[in-house]
């Protein structure tokens, strides 16, 4: 591949907090790297393990999940299930030899545009340092 490699990050953001926080980053014209592709869901707990695994399977270099701060979940406690699910998924990724840092969960409130932009900045850098996902390379072989 001649193209320079840019990390591909799939983001699953809950509508009420993190997605709104990302919007806030936009309205405040904060800049962050364009690696993330955001998919909106109502609650971060909508994201099942299959979706995360599928994203990696298909060649995502990283997956970002954004939800509401503890105690602030729009749906009371959905974010706690997300938190636990992601904790286990990170372990599972590690067991299979995929760096768990490629799967990141952050709580971002609707007001935290700055936190969202900063997180994107950091995460894009971190993933760039980790390099392309080994599964992405395998995916290309298959194709």
């Amino acid at each position: 591949m001649a193209e320079t490699w840019n990390p591909k990050i799939v983001g699953f953001l809950c509508n009420w907090c993190c997605y709104a926080g990302a919007d806030m980053a936009g309205t405040s014209r904060m800049k962050y790297p364009p690696n993330i592709r955001i998919i909106r869901v109502m609650c971060s707990s909508r994201i099942n393990a299959e979706m995360v695994i599928k994203a990696f399977q298909m060649g995502a270099d990283a997956v970002f999940i954004g939800g509401c701060h503890p105690g602030d979940c729009h749906y009371v406690d959905g974010n706690y299930r997300t938190q636990k699910r992601i904790a286990v998924l990170r372990r599972l990724l590690e067991h299979l030899g995929i760096d768990p840092r490629r799967l990141r969960l952050e709580w971002v409130s609707a007001a935290e545009g700055e936190k969202f932009a900063q997180t994107m900045d950091e995460f894009a850098k971190e993933v760039a340092e980790l390099g392309p996902s080994p599964l992405a390379a395998l995916q290309r072989e298959v194709l």
Partner: peptide, 20 residues
């Protein structure tokens, strides 16, 4: 999640889903 008609199943989605 798991493509039909493909052997072996794509690495590692089948086994990761089952493990999870």
């Amino acid at each position: 999640w798991v493509k039909h008609g493909r052997l072996p199943p794509e690495f590692p989605i089948y086994h990761m889903i089952r493990a999870f």
